[in-house]
Design a protein around this nucleic acid. Structure first.
Lengths: 336, 336
DNA sequence: GTTTTTTCCTATAACGTTTTCGTAAAAGCC
DNA sequence: GGCTTTTACGAAAACGTTATAGGAAAAAAC
């Protein structure tokens, strides 16, 4: 806004603007002594290049955007933390946009970003998928690098950072079975999502592998309405042939499961064994402490940002087909 | 990056660039029919003004920054959510920077932002205060509007959004006393912070008002090291003359208190009554459910962003001395 | 000593807007 | 019809950079 410009530096030094520009850019065309003079005066006046002028001229800048469904969620907060740790160290600025699982908002943000404000984009898509045309369009219009993480679309040309949802869900389900659960249910969302599909596959395959006959009632669909979820769960655990195990594949559902079991006087882990997919730090403090399958959220953010910046700076799509798979971590506590 | 520019629009329409610019800006200098023609072609080509060119020329843009200590923290995540809800609706873009309680990082971010990248700034300062000169300097250099929230410095010329920390801490302490606590302790941080000072004042005044003699040992200083905190708390609750009440004035300390009490077989609320200052959604699910003093984090973010944008757009500092005080909410549950 | 190369710098044209100023033509006024 | 005013547009400068092309002086090559 206020600071000194290159023009004024040049004037005071008796040099041309282009010389100053090159000196500041440490160009080989400029002599060491001139560079020194320029740098010193720049420092004295705390000269900062105007990013708008620079971005305009270079047709790109050091700004990226992150689009996520929610920030009041340990997983995404950790991911943003990871992203920011990388962008900060690489001197990039990070915009944040929240979709709140609203597809229209996601589209609106994407369209807004077609203006060219950013040089790259990290996304975790919202639920309620009806195609991913807007990502294609964004890419067609801007040709900007784009990295998806966790909730990724099935678009081949974009790199992705995900976790081993299938394998870890398989493992978690096996742990429930080995702990004695004869009829573990999967709690998942009604919204179609890549991640929950994978987790469901892992769950079902584990059942099959251990000779447990899968029936549709073993998938419990919960919603965004926590009250309703409570009712659903309570009903299911009131049946004669109630489940004796829970794999809560979505963060918030584990807590509701606990609530329902507690109220129905079902002992955890004696009557019901529970594993929750969650990054909540309070998991260990619940009563009994909750066994969790947690995602390496921070590292996912780090990887995504690292990949994105690599793509931005190499101007290459060599990395385009990269799919980075990080392992989820199973922590067995008292709930199993 | 790729899209069409005004120049190309003008060419195709047989108009000058300035006419197109004015038409898009809905200037009165342009006839209705011309405006219509321009708008239509712009829409057809999905024209988006280049923000860098625009910002450069206008010497300001619609970007703001948020600097906070941490995002993996319900309070700040909610605040960012509130901020984003406002900036999104007002068509501003929001940068995010995390200091991780590191003063050097805070200073570095501020210095970086002196480049003029943004038009306004929202901050919650990090702990370990040794003056606030860098904020002054930032303001001197940029003259940009700046709004503090929650953790605010004692700089008169900047507007702030805070909560009634003194009053609500007073009230919470009174509730502990009325619930039967004869010797409630305050758990706070070693780091000097405006908010914790206020909370401490409220706590002490409540004691005094109810005839409880305050001694220094009643302030328990915890740290960032959760293991150490556990040790500290355990020691304190192992004494003969142990406390019978806890006001945990920092989010994470409530959980550690629970842990320590549980391990020492001290029953909550029979032996120890607890109120925690926290926005954790799992508070109600702890055993026993935790009574909380929670901050209106989302609304604080909303207020701060609203104030900032008002300042940006009015170009006035009429609001400069505003201090918006929102009430904390005391929710009594089973821990008291 | 001339030619060639290298070194170091400058002039100038972008980048895509917005804004100021100027000016034809149309409209209003008497 | 001559005058002023309004309407509707265009020319050009400006915002602060960076990149391209060019050129004078110094150094190297023969």
């Amino acid at each position: 806004m206020n600071g000194i410009s290159m023009i004024q530096l040049a004037k005071e030094l008796g040099l041309s603007v282009s010389t100053v520009s090159k000196a500041l850019g440490d160009s080989h065309e400029i002599s060491a002594s001139t560079k020194k003079r320029v740098l010193e005066l720049a420092k004295k006046y705390k000269y900062k290049p105007n990013p708008f002028a620079s971005n305009l001229r270079k047709k790109k800048g050091k700004q990226i955007a992150v689009i996520i469904p929610d920030i009041v969620n340990n997983f995404f907060a950790l991911a943003v933390d990871g992203i920011e740790s990388v962008t900060m160290s690489k001197h990039y600025d990070t915009f944040i946009y929240l979709t709140h699982e609203n597809l229209e908002r996601e589209k609106a943000v994407l369209e807004h970003l077609e203006s060219g404000l950013i040089s790259g984009l990290i996304i975790s898509v919202c639920t309620g998928r009806e195609g991913y045309a807007h990502f294609q369009e964004f890419y067609e219009a801007t040709r900007l690098p784009l990295v998806f993480f966790d909730r990724v679309p099935d678009l081949l040309q974009f790199p992705k950072v995900i976790t081993n949802n299938y394998e870890s869900s398989f493992d978690a389900t096996v742990r429930l079975i080995k702990a004695g659960s004869k009829r573990p249910v999967l709690i998942t969302t009604t919204e179609p999502m890549f991640t929950s599909m994978e987790r469901r596959r892992g769950y079902q395959d584990a059942l099959e592998k251990h000779g447990i006959v899968f029936t549709d009632e073993m998938i419990v669909h919960c919603t965004d309405d926590m009250e309703l979820n409570y009712t659903i769960l309570r009903k299911i655990f009131s049946q004669k042939k109630r489940p004796d195990g829970i794999f809560a594949s979505i963060e918030k559902y584990a807590i509701t499961s606990y609530q329902a079991c507690k109220d129905l006087k079902l002992a955890i882990p004696k009557d019901v064994k529970v594993i929750g997919m969650t990054n909540l730090r309070t998991a260990a403090l619940l009563n009994p402490s909750l066994s969790t399958l947690s995602q390496p959220a921070f590292d996912m953010g780090k990887e995504a940002a690292g990949l994105l910046i690599k793509m931005i700076e190499k101007k290459s799509y060599a990395a385009a087909n990269d799919i980075i798979v990080l392992p989820n971590e199973l922590t067995i506590r008292d709930s199993i």
